[in-house]
Simulated scan of single mutants.
Amino acid sequence: MVQAYGADTGNDRTGPQRTGSGSRFRDLRDKWTRDPGIWRRGIVLALCAVLLTLVMAFHAKIPNTIGNLGSLSETFLPWIGAFVPLLLILGLVRRSATALIALLLPIVVWFNVFGGLLTDKSGSGGDLTVATHNVNADNPDPAGTARQVAGSGADIIALEELPARQVSKYEAALAERFPYHSVQGTVGLWSKYPMSNTRPVDIKMGWTRAMRSTVKTPRGDVAVYVAHLPSVRVKLHAGFTANQRDDSADALGEAIADERLDKVILLGDLNGTMNDRSLNAVTSQLRSTQGAAGNGFGFSWPASFPMARIDQILVKDVEPVSSWTLPSTGSDHLPIAARLKL
């Protein structure tokens, strides 16, 4: 039998078939735009996005009168950005245009505040390499830790939280590379260059956790400070217990303000970040090597999962060239180092 022209053969292809990602995108777009609740849903998510924005933009206005809440928020301020992906997912699940548009606010503010830290600002050259490390009083391998920090090529090393029973181990491990050193209380300074006018610095703690020394470098004298400010805790009944640290920071700031040498380097564990307004007595006089010449945030604590940079290398009338963190040791802090131009 001869089939008539135009009869159905079972392979009709007269209409184009819309398949693929483009078609799925259009279907999704049409579904969203025809949804009458797209603007009404997600109001709570939008308010959360606005709240994140306000905390980042106006963190200095959060009062410290209740549990040092302002300092607590400033310590972990970069991590506020971690809530953005969560809000994004929830906004997509809720199919809320309001929430997604509001989410642009914290994204813009976060990049405005912290975007500069994401670029590599490190350079080459420099005259002096310095390193600092809170070695942890319970460090199981003092000698190995000391050798590892010295392996960074540092000309000057500051160590904090030195227990008296282990000082000799650190001294023995560093003696060959660093002919000059001094230990004051629980902090110590080792140098390849001569040291003079070395003395403890009173930071209002009742025992010595800070010191100062003049280091005679090939480029001239530099005042080097080593400090370990008091620890802070977060307690449900008391909030962010940082009052003793704040008092010590003020005392350290006074000592640095009275310094007669122009070039100043501060090495140590400040138990606070550069964003924390309670460290203004110190940070208003010095600048961070990580912010000026680092690559990324340079978080140093805790070593197992670094969340904050509370170990600092700060300078005055000295040009930072590069700044970095060193590999983990037996401590709960990471060592940090910087290359400086005098």
Rank of each mutant, 00 (worst) to 15 (best):
A4W: 01
T9N: 12
N11W: 07
D12L: 03
D12R: 12
T14Q: 02
P16G: 05
P16Q: 04
P16C: 03
T19P: 00
R29S: 13
P36K: 06
R41C: 08
L47P: 06
A60F: 04
E74V: 08
I80C: 12
I80Q: 04
P85V: 14
L86N: 01
G91V: 03
L92T: 05
V93T: 09
R94K: 15
S96L: 14
L100N: 07
P106I: 14
I107Y: 05
V108R: 08
G115K: 04
G123E: 12
G123Q: 08
S124W: 05
H133N: 09
N139T: 06
N139W: 10
A146R: 00
R147V: 01
G151I: 01
I157S: 03
I157F: 08
A158Y: 01
Q166F: 00
Q166V: 03
G185Y: 13
R199V: 04
V201M: 05
K204Y: 11
A210N: 06
A249S: 08
D250F: 01
G253Y: 00
A257H: 02
E259N: 05
E259Y: 02
L266H: 00
D276M: 15
L279G: 12
R287D: 07
A292S: 04
A293C: 13
F297R: 15
F299C: 11
W301L: 11
F305Q: 07
R309Q: 10
I310L: 05
D317T: 11
W324A: 03
W324V: 13
